[in-house]
Structures are given as structure tokens and as C-alpha cells.
Design a protein around this nucleic acid. Structure first.
Length: 393
DNA sequence: TCTGGGGTCCTAGGACCC
DNA sequence: TCTGGGGTCCTAGGACCC
């Protein structure tokens, strides 16, 4: 069985934990917009990307706090330690939720339900936070179950009545149905998962496109073979900045200063992660709330500030007509196609810290084969181990 | 109801290669 | 010289998630 564990109103709960006066009161953690709202605040209709000023109209007694990200990441670490002590198969999804595969732990730890009860108890006792757990045979069902059980709940979906649980639910509960997809389905009178299941795969693909159609068809028929994946590496690192008031055709110097700040922030993070990226993306939002992106893929992966800045300046120039016509309200950048900064992926035992001898080999490969060899290496890097074709390319 | 900042995955068209 | 088919990569955009 698989557990989906999800901390309730995470940021707001940490604040209530750390200040007894906040408990039982509506709490909003926000910076301009609501990042997290306690369930007391949600009762007034406050939800997450709402403006703080609007939230206060709905709920005038709410306490509004500035986020304390270090406190949240510290709490998250302690919760993940409890996850890791429960089972070696933990897949983190975000700062506050994870899948836990508990197959084969019966002898050691009891039934999956008993494990889930203990997990909730441990998180409450040791970290002081409420957590909801869904238990089911598949990832998707476990995730849906925790969503239904929130807040501070536990829901086990018995393997012999999975469809009885799934089919009466609203389509919005499915993982991958957002506002746009929900609207398309509603327009055709489809509101329940059971109705979705009656629609053939072809019909669904015609409405939603190939991937989304197949995906939702499988989920509605309770097919989800995805295993719990221990660690997935990020494929991109980015940062963005709402420029807010400067709606008028932007001052180029000011625009460039913002860009430099973003590039500095992102390249620091990329270097700290010991990674390099090959594609840079410029993201923009305009005065009329439309968005656009411009991207460029470099010959060679890099994490150098100047190289990335140069590429982005080029993209800004290409987007300048758009910027001057609409006025910017947000500027963002992303470095994607990330790889490890040694370019050649090493066999697992060496993955974390290549010995000096290996570093030297990598340098020699760089010198002798140049850019092309590195490009090939980056493509091979997605599979495990050092592969011979690299050297003969 | 006009919303911040961090991500993921998918699609469609064009360029290019064999 | 004409024509076909298959594949990869890049770019831009869209939807979704927390």
C-alpha cells in the first residue's frame, strides 16, 4: 500500500504551533497574496493566491503574518526525517507532502493503516503539526484520499472497493484536472469521475488532447501503475519578480538592473547545486495579464553569470517591441535542461563526489573533444553510468 | 477575481539530418 | 531529379501543481 502524507495549511500551522495565541484563530501567512491560510480563515472563504487585502475584507479578524521560510524548511526537514524512519521509499513532492511506499513492512511495522496512524501521531508529537494521510493501493488514490480527508484526517481506501470510492467524486478531485479542464468537462455535462469513466478514451482525447485525455481516462478507470520514486532531480531553476507599478513602456536601464539581479540570484543557486543548464528562458507578464516567453538553447551547458546574462539580454532585445507595446508587470528567468556540472554522469557510488582522478579524466575529455563531446555527454548523462560511446563520438 | 513565486509535463510547428 | 518516411532538437505556448 501507498501513503500520501500532506501537512495541513503548512505555513499557517507552523505559526500556530510557535505562538499559542494564534491557535483557534484565523491566521493568514502572506506577502501581498495569501501563501497559506489556516482552516479558521478558510471558513471565511479565504484561499491561497488571493490578495491579502481581499482576504481581510472577507475575514477582518484574521492575523496576517509575514512568511518565515527558514522556520518552514526546518519543520519540513523534521517531518521528512519521520517519513524516512517509516520506510526507505519516500518520494517528496514539495515542502509539505510526500508519497511513502510501505509494501513489505507488515512484519516490521504492522498494517498500512497502523503505520499511517503512527505516522500522524509521530508528526503531531515530535514536530507539533497536523498532517493528513491517505492510504491506498496506488499513488493517485492515496493522493485523492488525503484530499478528501483533509484537515487532520486519515482515510484508507479498501482495495476491494476502489471504484465505489472514486466514481462518485467530482472530477476536480482528479490529479491533473484544473480550472480549464474542469470547464471543458462541465460544458459536456460531465461532473463526476464515474461519468468520465463511461466516456471512451478516444472521446476524452478528442476533448482534452492526447496526453491529458489518456491520463484522465486511466485515472478514471483506476489505472495508475506509477511506482514511488525515491529521488527526482530538478530539471530547471528559476526566479521571477513582479515589477508591479511600472506598467508604462519600461525604462531600459531599470529593466536591465532587474534582469541582472535575477540572473545573479539564479546562477548562484545553480552553482550551489553543482549543476549547469543549457537553455535560458525569459518570462514576461504584461499589463493586460497576458504572458509570453522567449528562450534560447546554448551550445554548451553553463552556470556562468555573464554567459547567461548575455543570452537573456539578447532575448530581451527580441521581445522589446512586445514589452514597449504592453508594459511589463512581471519579469522572470529560468535555467533549464539542467545537468550535473561535471557533465559526465558517474556510476552511482561516485555520484555525489567524484574523486580527483575522475575530475582529471573529465577535464581531458573536455579538452580533447570540446563542445561536441560535452553535448553528447549531456545527452548520455540521463542514463546511468559512464558510457563508452562518449569517447568515440 | 484580476495573483506571488517556485516548479512539472505536454504539444505543435519548423529546421535539420539520414 | 523527384519523392517519401522517420527521427531529433529547438522554440513558444498552455495547463497544472503546491
Amino acid at each position: 500500500m501507498i501513503l500520501h502524507a500532506d501537512l495541513d495549511a503548512f505555513y499557517a500551522s507552523v505559526e500556530q504551533r510557535d505562538d499559542a495565541r494564534l491557535r483557534g484563530r484565523p491566521v493568514i501567512v502572506g506577502a501581498g497574496v495569501v501563501l497559506s491560510a489556516s482552516y479558521e480563515a478558510r471558513a471565511f472563504g479565504v484561499y491561497t493566491p488571493m490578495g491579502v487585502s481581499k482576504a481581510l475584507l472577507l475575514c477582518p479578524d484574521a492575523v496576517v503574518l509575514h512568511p518565515r521560510f527558514t522556520a518552514y524548511s526546518e519543520a519540513s526537514k523534521r517531518v521528512f526525517e519521520i517519513f524516512d524512519n517509516t520506510t526507505p521509499l519516500v518520494e517528496g513532492l514539495s515542502i509539505d507532502e510526500a508519497f511513502l511506499d510501505v509494501h513489505g513492512l507488515e512484519q516490521l511495522s504492522g498494517t498500512s493503516t497502523e503505520i499511517a496512524i503512527k505516522l500522524r501521531h509521530d508528526v503531531r508529537e515530535q514536530v507539533g503539526l497536523p498532517i493528513t494521510v491517505g492510504v491506498a493501493r496506488t499513488k493517485h488514490l492515496a493522493k485523492v484520499a488525503s484530499g478528501v480527508a483533509k484537515p487532520d484526517g486519515l482515510l484508507v481506501v479498501p482495495p476491494d472497493d476502489e471504484l465505489g470510492f472514486l466514481h462518485p467524486l467530482a472530477v476536480e478531485h482528479l490529479w491533473g484536472v484544473g480550472p480549464v479542464t474542469a470547464r471543458k468537462l462541465h460544458q459536456r455535462g460531465i461532473t463526476r469521475v464515474g461519468q468520465l469513466a463511461e466516456l471512451g478514451e478516444d472521446g476524452l482525447v478528442a476533448i482534452l488532447g492526447r496526453a491529458a485525455g489518456r491520463h484522465l481516462h486511466a485515472l478514471a478507470h483506476n489505472q495508475d501503475p506509477r511506482p514511488v520514486h525515491v529521488r527526482r532531480r530538478r530539471h530547471s531553476i528559476g526566479s521571477q519578480h513582479a515589477t508591479g507599478l511600472c506598467r508604462l513602456p519600461s525604462d531600459p536601464a531599470e529593466l536591465d538592473a532587474t534582469l541582472v539581479g535575477l540572473v545573479d540570484r539564479v546562477t548562484r543557486r545553480v552553482r550551489a547545486a553543482r549543476r549547469v543548464g543549457r537553455t535560458v528562458v525569459l518570462r514576461m507578464r504584461f499589463g493586460d495579464y497576458t504572458r509570453a516567453t522567449r528562450s534560447q538553447t546554448l551550445v554548451m551547458a553553463t552556470n556562468e553569470t555573464q554567459t547567461i546574462l548575455r543570452a537573456l539580454r539578447g532575448l530581451v532585445v527580441s521581445a522589446m517591441p512586445l514589452i514597449q507595446r504592453e508594459g511589463l508587470t512581471m519579469l522572470g528567468i529560468t535555467v533549464s535542461n539542467l545537468e550535473n556540472d561535471d557533465a559526465v554522469q558517474l556510476p552511482l557510488p561516485f555520484e555525489r563526489r567524484p574523486p580527483r582522478a575522475v575530475d582529471r579524466v573529465v577535464d581531458q575529455v573536455r579538452e580533447r573533444f570540446g563542445v561536441k563531446a560535452l553535448t553528447r555527454a549531456s545527452q548520455l548523462g540521463r542514463s546511468d553510468g559512464l558510457e563508452v560511446p562518449l569517447l568515440s563520438d
